[in-house]
């Protein structure tokens, strides 16, 4: 478990006091991570924006009750998850797309928005293609598996933190994550040439 950051604790205390500028700062610190998680959960830029806004609204409503015994990011990602799952419940009839379709649909958009460290053009194209294939494969995972993969790998949460964020026993988190990784590997078999 990471130690709480004193600067962040101070910022949260100011948020609890209802200081607008403190919220402004807290939101700036986390909006990109929330947006990324929301995008990779929802597979939609529009939904990702809405989920991000809703998440920070819930943060605003509930910040007074954040006790600080959990990491703020763990608590925040728990809220993102709830917001996403609530929305998901409302649009349950949404058609699921196959991996191939997702790749075709998403490839260009994903690679266009990715921030890169400016390698050579060919290398960049290859990396982008690989990452967008990976992104698309992640999006085909079942909700909970996808969530865990994202929290662990892209958000860098520990098994303990994921267990806390999702109210699951740590053994369950570990075994589900293992299954998710194996499933992901399997789904990427179709795009083997990229690896």
């Amino acid at each position: 478990m990471r130690l709480p950051d004193p600067a962040e604790q101070k910022l949260i205390a100011r948020c609890k006091a209802g200081e607008r500028s403190a919220f402004d700062e807290l939101i700036r610190q986390y909006e990109k991570r929330v947006y990324n998680l929301a995008y990779r959960l929802s597979a939609s830029y529009d939904d990702a924006g809405d989920i991000t806004v809703d998440t920070f609204m819930r943060v605003y409503q509930a910040i007074g009750l954040f006790r600080g015994d959990a990491n703020f990011s763990t608590w925040l990602f728990r809220i993102v998850t709830n917001v996403y799952l609530d929305r998901r419940k409302k649009t349950r009839n949404k058609v699921t797309v196959s991996l191939e379709e997702v790749i075709e649909l998403e490839e260009s958009t994903v690679s266009r928005q990715v921030e890169s460290d400016t390698p050579g053009p060919e290398e960049e194209a290859e990396t982008n293609e690989r990452n967008s294939a990976l992104d698309s494969a992640i999006m085909t995972l079942p909700d909970y598996q996808r969530l865990m993969v994202l929290l662990y790998h892209t958000e860098g949460l520990s098994y303990e933190e994921i267990a806390e964020a999702l109210s699951l026993p740590i053994g369950t988190v570990k075994s589900r994550l293992n299954r998710a990784r194996l499933l992901l590997r399997e789904r990427l078999q179709a795009r083997r040439e990229l690896f």
Binding site: I27, E31, Y35
Partner: peptide, 25 residues
């Protein structure tokens, strides 16, 4: 796969996102 997942790049947030959040706030 593991190292690719760990290195998956962050997308940049849309330009208007911060403003949208602050308006709702």
């Amino acid at each position: 796969l593991w190292s690719m997942l760990d290195e998956l790049p962050e997308l940049s947030a849309p330009a208007g996102l911060h403003g949208d959040i602050m308006r709702s706030l």
